[in-house]
Design a protein around this nucleic acid. Structure first.
Length: 158
DNA sequence: GCCAACGTTGGC
DNA sequence: GCCAACGTTGGC
């Protein structure tokens, strides 16, 4: 067995587009995380996200933005086919099927948080200082979470 | 390669 | 709806 440290992540979604409830409602509670069109976020999915990694599910652009649940990676990076579909919202005419530039992973629902850990609470936590999420002006839709921060956030649930 | 203009994200 | 913070694009 590989002795690999489990990694932790956070992914953002607008609940109007795709919420934690939507993920739970999938037939196998699994969905591909398509539509990421940012290179840094893409690189995380392509290079670093491994099956079994734990993922915070974050709702953005909503009344109370914050962490609403947990998912886990169940398939590692592969071509995001939506980039080739002219009818798709995230169509990228410059993406060549022979040389795909966009990548997605599959995530599986694990559970809801007992309550939303709001962005306000996250910002107020001294232990989370320096976390990419609470950094000003952060727009990354996929970001790594340090193990210590993961634990801190879980403790905020209680 | 610089940088202004423009588009998007996302909190408020 | 506003606007700050970025990322991307395109002229030069």
């Amino acid at each position: 067995m590989d002795l690999v440290l489990k990694r932790y992540w956070l992914v953002k979604s607008e609940p109007d587009e795709f919420s934690i409830d939507d993920l739970q409602a999938q037939p196998d509670q699994t969905e591909h995380w398509d539509g990421v069109r940012n290179h840094q976020a893409r690189n995380f999915m392509r290079d670093d996200m491994k099956v079994g990694d734990q993922v915070f599910f974050y709702h953005s652009n909503t009344k109370i933005p914050g962490i609403v649940g947990i998912a886990e990676v169940c398939r590692e990076g592969y071509t995001d086919h939506t980039a080739f579909d002219p009818d798709d919202k995230h169509y990228d005419p410059k993406s060549d099927p022979d040389k795909p530039r966009w990548i997605m992973v599959d995530v599986k629902y694990v559970r809801h948080m007992t309550h939303t850990i709001s962005l306000t609470e996250l910002k107020d936590s001294a232990a989370l200082e320096g976390c990419p999420l609470t950094r000003r002006g952060n727009r990354l839709s996929v970001m790594p979470i340090e193990p210590a921060h993961w634990t801190t956030i879980l403790e905020m649930e209680a």
